[in-house]
Amino acid sequence: MPKPRKEQVSLEATPYYHCVSRCVRRAFLCGTDDSTQHSYEHRRAWLEDELLKQAHTFAVDIAAYAIMSNHYHVVLHVNKQQADSWTFDEVIERWHSLYKGNVLSQRYRVNPKFSKAEKDKLAEFVSLWRERLMDISWFMRRLNETISRKANEEDNCTGHFWEGRFKSQALLDEKALAACLAYVDLNPIRAKMAKSPETSDHTSAKKRIEKAKSAQLANHPDQQVKELLPFVGNPKQDMPLGLPFKLTDYLELLDWTGRMIRKDKRGAISAKLPPILQRLNIRSDNWLELTQTFETNFKGLVGEPESLNNALPYFNRQRRTSLQASQVLLG
């Protein structure tokens, strides 16, 4: 039986979550339907554009994404600090850019001269909307509803387009985060949709690589892709908000891993282990297992055994799931 969403998300344990949504229809989200030869490839751009657009409104950052034929992956970072910094009026404006709000909020936008009772009542809604604007369930719900409506209109039909619930995994530490980022970015290569990260359309990997090619200082957060959570370097004091790795290290790791996954290229693999794996103390064979079977090896919580132990109270759990995989691959 699926666990309630509140038992799958805990900001006290981690702000990082890997989410996956899959279609329920025989027809593709994207790609070409072999039975009709009708192409749905343009829907990948729909989803990519809406995903990045929503990140500007929600206090949710995009760390990685890959849009496949009948599903998509995204690694989300919940930015509570950003949500808490929004003013009363800014929360209302952000919510109204997504939904209609209510009679009170609509009146307030026209004339903010409210009585104390009206302002107090509106404040209750603003508090609720602030929570929803940093909630991955609301983020995924809004994204999937938008694409579902467009697809149903194009297909001239009604009904469910996505599975009832998106799947989520909490990424509890650096090892889990790095493995999941690479797992997502290399999805098209494993599926034989692309031969390399830089040619994998509608992925965060391609977007980051294209930007890095034109940047003078690829590792500087200000010279990375604006729509994505930046790589800010290895952990240090006064660390800015972002992924705790160097971008160049991560891209080298992607290239190395992609070559290993493509069996036809095994003869050309460099013997040099990317430095990011050395820092994280992950064996190369374990890394390859992680980046090809991440979803199947871990259920719900992903991290080292100690990270699993520390996270249990936050998720109202008594038992460590996927403990054997954690000990073997991340321990």
Rank of each mutant, 00 (worst) to 15 (best):
Y40G: 04
E41H: 15
R44V: 01
R44A: 15
W46K: 07
L47N: 06
E48D: 01
E48Q: 14
E48T: 09
D49M: 04
E50H: 13
E50F: 07
L51C: 11
L51G: 05
K53Q: 12
Q54T: 01
A55E: 01
H56Q: 04
F58L: 07
A59Q: 02
A59S: 13
V60R: 01
D61K: 11
I62C: 12
A63W: 00
Y65D: 08
A66F: 03
A66T: 10
I67C: 10
I67H: 02
I67T: 10
I67Y: 04
M68N: 12
M68A: 07
S69P: 04
N70I: 06
H71M: 12
Y72H: 12
H73W: 09
V75Q: 04
L76D: 06
V78L: 11
N79I: 04
K80G: 05
Q81V: 08
Q82L: 13
A83Y: 10
W86E: 10
D89C: 00
D89E: 15
D89N: 09
D89L: 03
V91D: 08
E93T: 11
E93D: 14
R94M: 08
R94G: 06
W95G: 03
W95T: 08
W95N: 12
L98Y: 05
K100N: 15
G101C: 05
N102A: 05
V103A: 15
L104E: 11
Q106K: 13
Q106E: 15
V110A: 15
N111H: 12
K113R: 10
F114I: 02
S115F: 13
D120E: 15
D120R: 10
A123Y: 03
A123F: 05
E124I: 09
E124F: 12
V126Q: 01
S127L: 12
S127Y: 04
W129F: 02
R130V: 05
M134K: 14
M134I: 01
D135I: 01
I136V: 09
W138E: 09
M140W: 00
R141K: 13
R142W: 03
R142D: 08
L143D: 08
L143V: 12
N144W: 01
E145R: 10
I147Q: 06
R149A: 11
